[in-house]
Design a protein around this nucleic acid. Structure first.
Length: 589
RNA sequence: CGGGGCGUAGCGCAGCCUGGUAGCGCACCUGCCUUGGGCGCAGGGGGUCCGCGGUUCAAAUCCGCGCGCCCCGACCA
C-alpha cells in the first residue's frame, strides 16, 4: 500500500522563477522532476511512475509489430564516419574521447548502430522484413535547451528501424508504425493530429509527424477544419486566389519609375498606388560551402523572388537548394549586382540557367505564385528607381520556379478550399521513410530471390517519451495543477481521509485503498497528518485524475469521489467503490 | 552564433545605486492549538551572498576575468 506520508513527493507552493510553460512549472511543483543542469532532468518518484507507464504502453504496442533491442549510448566514431554523419551533425552531437584518445559519441539516434547490426547479420531476403526498436536515452547537445522537458539534452526516445527488401515492403512497415502510433497515443489519452511532414533534403520520401496542439510547442502546423488536410509549415501549401494582373504601361517593355527613398514593399506599393501583391520582393541570400579538403569557403549568391505580400519559407528553400543560406550583406549585394540594397531586381543580371549548371552564376529562384503573372513591379537595381511591366520568363529568366512560400492562416485549403488554420504544436512522434541512405553508405546488402545483391530499404520511427508526458500536462491543466489520463498517471486514485487522527476515517480509508489495490487499481493513501486544505491542494496539483474524500459521511457508509478535471463530486457507497471504479476506469479495457 | 536578463537559505525574493551586524515570506524542526481548501501562537535550525582575482582598514555591495541558469532570435529527422 502506497502511503503518502512515507513517500518522497516534494511539492512546491511556488514554481521556480525560470519556468515558463505550464508543464515545466507543474512538473517541478508536483515533484515529478528536478533539474540537474541545462536540459538535463532527474525523474523523481511520481515522474518515474508516469514515465514507466508511458513506456509500458509504447512497449506493449511496439511488441505487436517489432522486436525490442537495447543498444549502447556510447558509439565509436567509426560508425558515424561510415554514415557520413560525424561531420554532418556538427555541434549537436556530444563527442568525447576515451583514455586512449579514441573518439566516441553519445548516440542522438541509432541508425548507425542498427544498420551496423543489419550489415553484419542480414544475408538473405528470407530474413526480411525486420522491425527493431528500443526505448533508450538519447543525447543531443542542443544549442538552447528550453521549456522544461520539451527541449532537453538527454531524453528518452523510442526509436524503431525497419528493413525491407523493397519499397512495397517499406510501405507495409510504415503503415504498421502509423497504426501503432495511433494506438499508442490513443491509449496515452492524447488529443493529437497527424500531419504531412517535410522529408528534408533527401526528398521524395514519405513522412508524418504526430502533433499535439499547444501554445507551448515549437512547431507550426497547418490544418483544415473542412477536411482532413494537415501539414507542417515546411510542407504546407494553399490555393491562392487568382490575381488579375495590371495592364501594361506604355509599350509594355520594362519601364523605370522614380521612387525616391521608397525601399520596403509597403513603401513602394503605397507610393505607386498599388497593392503589394503586384510587386516582387527580392531576397538576396548567400550559401557558404566549406570545402573539406582545402578548407576554403565557396560562396554562391541566390536571389529569391516572392510576391510582395508573401513570406519566404526557409525550410522549403533549404529543400530546394539543399544547403544552408544566410542573408547577403549590403556590400555583397552592391559588389555582385551593382545594386543598392532595397532596389534589387532581376533585370540585367546573368542568372544561372539551371540548378545544376552555371555554378559561377547566381541562382534566381522564383516562387510559384509569380509563375504566369505579368506586369509586376520590382527594384531596378538603381538607387530610387523601380521597374514596372515585368513579366517573368519574358523580361528575365528564372533559374527555377519552386514552392518557397509560407502559408498564412486563412488561405484556402489545397484540398477543399476552406480557410486553413495555423496552430503551434509539440511533436510527439515522427515516422519517416528513410530509403537506402544508411544501408547504402554503411554497406548493408542481402541477396534477393534471384541471388542478386540488393540494399535493404529502411524506415525510422521515433517517439519522445518526455513529450508525451509534457503534452498531456499542457493539454490538461488549470491554475491549481494538472490531471493526467489515468493510463499514464502515476496513480489513478488518491484516497484522502479528511482527518487521520480520526480512527474511523483512517480505518475506512485504509480499507478502501486495500480493496482498490486488490482490484488492481493504482491507489495512493494520503495519510499525512495535514489539514484537509493542504492535502486537497496537493492532490489537485500532482496529476492524479481521481480523488476519494473520506470524511464525515463515512458514518452513513458513503465517501465522495471527485473527478479532478471537472471537479465533479459524487457520493458513492463504500461497499460499491471498487465497482464504481471498475465502471469508470476499466470500462474500455 | 547574435541580443537581453539573472545568480543572496530548499523555493520565491529584498539588500547592491550610496562599502561597515545578511534579511523577509513560504518550506523545515520543537511545543501548544486546529482539522472540508496551503489554520493560528510561541520558540528554533539553516548561508563558501556562483567562482577567482583586484581596490579598500573593511566587499553580497565597487572593478576585472571566468562559470552557471533563463528568455528572444538563429539553429533543429
Amino acid at each position: 500500500m502506497h502511503r503518502w506520508s512515507e513517500l518522497f513527493i516534494p511539492t512546491l507552493r511556488e514554481a521556480p522563477a525560470d519556468a515558463e510553460v505550464a508543464s515545466h512549472k507543474f512538473l517541478v511543483r508536483a515533484g515529478y522532476i528536478r533539474q540537474l543542469a541545462a536540459g538535463i532532468y532527474s525523474y523523481l518518484f511520481l515522474g518515474n511512475r508516469s514515465f514507466n507507464k508511458i513506456m509500458a504502453i509504447v512497449r506493449q504496442e511496439m511488441d505487436r509489430i517489432g522486436q525490442e533491442f537495447f543498444l549502447p549510448a556510447l558509439h565509436p566514431r567509426e560508425i558515424w564516419e561510415a554514415s557520413g554523419r560525424w561531420a554532418l551533425m556538427g555541434d549537436n552531437l556530444f563527442r568525447l574521447k576515451d583514455r586512449k584518445g579514441a573518439d566516441l559519441a553519445l548516440g542522438m539516434t541509432e541508425e548507425e548502430v542498427m544498420t551496423e547490426i543489419a550489415r553484419k547479420e542480414l544475408r538473405s531476403y528470407k530474413q526480411l522484413p525486420q522491425i527493431w526498436y528500443q526505448i533508450a536515452p538519447k543525447f543531443r547537445d542542443e544549442p538552447r535547451p528550453r521549456s522544461g522537458l520539451l527541449r532537453v539534452r538527454q531524453f528518452m526516445m523510442k526509436d524503431a528501424y525497419s528493413f525491407d527488401i523493397d519499397a512495397a515492403g517499406l510501405d507495409v512497415s510504415y503503415k504498421k508504425h502509423y497504426d501503432t502510433y495511433c494506438r499508442i497515443f490513443d491509449r496515452c489519452g492524447l488529443k493529437y493530429m497527424v500531419v504531412e511532414a517535410d522529408s528534408g533534403a533527401m526528398g521524395g520520401k514519405e513522412s508524418h509527424e504526430f502533433m499535439v496542439r499547444t501554445p507551448a510547442g515549437e512547431d507550426q502546423i497547418v490544418s483544415c477544419d473542412g477536411c482532413d488536410y494537415a501539414a507542417n509549415m515546411e510542407k504546407a501549401t494553399s490555393k491562392l486566389d487568382v490575381v488579375p494582373d495590371l495592364a501594361p504601361e506604355g509599350d509594355g517593355k520594362p519601364l523605370e519609375v522614380h521612387t525616391p527613398a521608397q525601399k520596403t514593399i509597403e513603401d513602394v506599393a503605397r507610393f505607386l498606388g498599388v497593392l503589394p501583391k503586384y510587386t516582387i520582393k527580392a531576397l538576396a541570400l548567400m550559401t557558404d560551402e566549406k570545402d573539406e579538403k582545402t578548407g576554403n569557403t565557396k560562396s554562391r549568391a541566390i536571389v529569391v523572388l516572392m510576391r510582395g505580400d508573401h513570406q519566404l519559407n526557409e525550410a522549403k528553400l533549404n529543400g530546394t537548394v539543399a544547403i544552408a543560406t544566410r542573408p547577403m550583406e549590403e556590400g555583397e549585394i552592391r559588389a555582385l549586382f551593382k545594386s543598392p540594397a532595397g532596389y534589387l531586381g532581376p533585370l540585367g543580371i546573368e542568372w544561372a540557367k539551371d540548378l545544376k549548371k552555371d555554378a559561377d552564376r547566381p541562382l534566381l529562384l522564383v516562387d510559384e505564385a509569380l509563375e504566369g503573372r505579368t506586369n509586376l513591379i520590382a527594384g531596378a537595381n538603381k538607387e530610387n528607381y523601380h521597374a514596372k511591366n515585368l513579366t517573368p520568363g519574358k523580361d528575365f529568366h528564372p533559374t527555377a520556379y519552386a514552392d518557397l512560400r509560407s502559408v498564412t492562416a486563412g488561405e484556402a485549403c489545397p484540398n477543399c478550399g476552406k480557410a486553413l488554420r495555423i496552430d503551434t504544436a509539440v511533436e510527439i512522434g515522427h515516422i519517416f521513410k528513410l530509403g537506402c541512405r544508411y544501408s547504402e553508405s554503411m554497406g548493408a546488402r542481402v541477396l534477393d530471390k534471384n541471388g542478386k545483391e540488393v540494399t535493404p530499404i529502411m524506415g525510422c520511427y521515433g517517439i519522445g517519451i518526455e513529450r508525451i508526458l509534457t503534452a498531456a500536462v499542457e493539454q490538461s491543466n488549470d491554475e491549481n495543477g494538472f490531471w493526467l489520463p489515468p493510463s499514464i498517471a502515476p496513480f489513478e486514485i488518491v484516497v484522502t481521509p479528511i482527518n487521520v487522527k480520526d480512527q474511523t476515517l483512517l480505518k475506512a480509508a485504509v480499507d478502501i485503498v486495500g480493496r482498490l489495490d486488490a482490484a488492481g487499481f493504482d491507489v495512493i493513501l494520503d495519510d499525512r497528518d495535514e489539514r484537509p486544505g493542504v492535502k486537497f491542494k496537493d492532490a489537485d496539483l500532482v496529476g492524479i485524475p481521481f480523488r476519494i474524500n473520506v470524511g464525515k459521511k463515512v458514518t452513513e457508509g458513503t465517501v465522495e469521489v471527485v473527478l479532478r478535471s471537472t471537479r465533479e463530486v459524487r457520493d458513492v457507497t463504500i461497499s460499491s467503490v471498487v465497482e464504481h471504479f471498475q465502471g469508470v476506469l476499466r470500462a474500455k479495457a
